[in-house]
Nucleic acid binder design. Sequence first.
DNA 1: CTAAAGTGTTCCTGTTTAGGAATACTATAC
DNA 2: GTATAGTATTCCTAAACAGGAACACTTTAG
Lengths: 234, 234
Amino acid sequence: MDVVELLTQFNLTRQEATIYIALHTEGDSTGYEVAKLTGISRSNAYTSLASLVDKGAAYVMEGSANRYTAVALEEFCTNNIRRMQELKQKLISVMPQARAQPTGYITVKGENHILDKMQTMIVEADERVYLSLSKKILEHLLPALRDGLLRGIKVVIITDIALDLPGATIYRADKEANQIRLIADSTDVLTGDISDGAESTCLYSRSKNLIDLFKDALRNEITLIELRKGGNKL
Amino acid sequence: MDVVELLTQFNLTRQEATIYIALHTEGDSTGYEVAKLTGISRSNAYTSLASLVDKGAAYVMEGSANRYTAVALEEFCTNNIRRMQELKQKLISVMPQARAQPTGYITVKGENHILDKMQTMIVEADERVYLSLSKKILEHLLPALRDGLLRGIKVVIITDIALDLPGATIYRADKEANQIRLIADSTDVLTGDISDGAESTCLYSRSKNLIDLFKDALRNEITLIELRKGGNKL
DNA sequence: CTAAAGTGTTCCTGTTTAGGAATACTATAC
DNA sequence: GTATAGTATTCCTAAACAGGAACACTTTAG
């Protein structure tokens, strides 16, 4: 994803993004200058500049000829994210009551959603999380795990390398690079792998039967590690 | 903004939003049930369900007949916001170098952008902020001010009601309801009002001359408050 | 067993909206 | 005259939105 495309994720059209970048790199400019800098038709340049102002990405410096200046990138992104937070709060307050969560077997599809689900499980854990996965996947989860440890969550990890995560219990074992096993609070489990990127699937469940199976499997895996290495606990 | 419209801000189409709400309130359903619940044509229901799964708003529960279940609302919003945070970091790392900030006079237009600018000024202050505004506007800024106080920022506020903000210096004076005066770190100022909603404008500047003018005006306002009330400092 | 209901998919049509390209006009300054 | 500045308008294309028909298969009920 290039810069223009990243900016489109912040609700700018391609032309608006192009113009934003020009304002950012070249400094404050008139509509006429912007059109020349970017090669966009003048009429569309003026339309886009007005839109950038509406969307909080640019300000006007009023004069005989108006000049436009980019809102600082970090400020613009932060403002967008703050807006999303506010919309989230609004949504939560007006959304009708939810039906009870299903207790069946849920397919989580796509690497991004699987990582999201893992983060959510860690963030929402009250007591403990057990993970068995490779360093590669674990790296995505370190901030959430660190935060969890700060909250007093018990964190137990089986992974394939030495890991510096104070407060966590780490076991070392060879791991399939993309395999995932995660259990949180004895209430929910996630298992599968992310070898197929967007086509990857994992199973998520709150089913007690599956949770028990998992706890046993993880417990046994830990016992075997300890027996084989005389306790390779770090 | 109703629920459907709020959900469109999280990248769902109107039909997807309608279906998400149905899944949320009625619980897990097949495509056929969803079409009946929502009155959306069956073929569009299936298309939208597939899209909801792609967008992380729903999961599949696979079986002879697939059932779909809504991702919890808070989880879905949080995942979206996390994604925006990640995109922000990516953008910051690939964006070309910015030209220097302008030192002229910038028009900030629209209530939302004005509030954004105030929040940014407070968040980015290193030493102190002075504010003269009504309680109505101040309420929007309290979290940022509290955080600033925690960071050791000096906060001085002239406002129209008693205010419980430990660590801040509060002066009481009648204030025009929508008038804004804010100065941060002796480096930037914002003044204007938000009486016209989306059409409101404020002036933002880093011009030393205007900053000096402001400091004098605020200082004098404080002196007059103290003389008139024998120091109505709270 | 048959018929109906449920499930899933493909294909089609029509309308509306948004993004973008281009032209033309007015106004000001030199 | 040219260059700059701003606005209005038209046209085109793709996507979104909406609805529906048709087909095939599975499950359920009588």
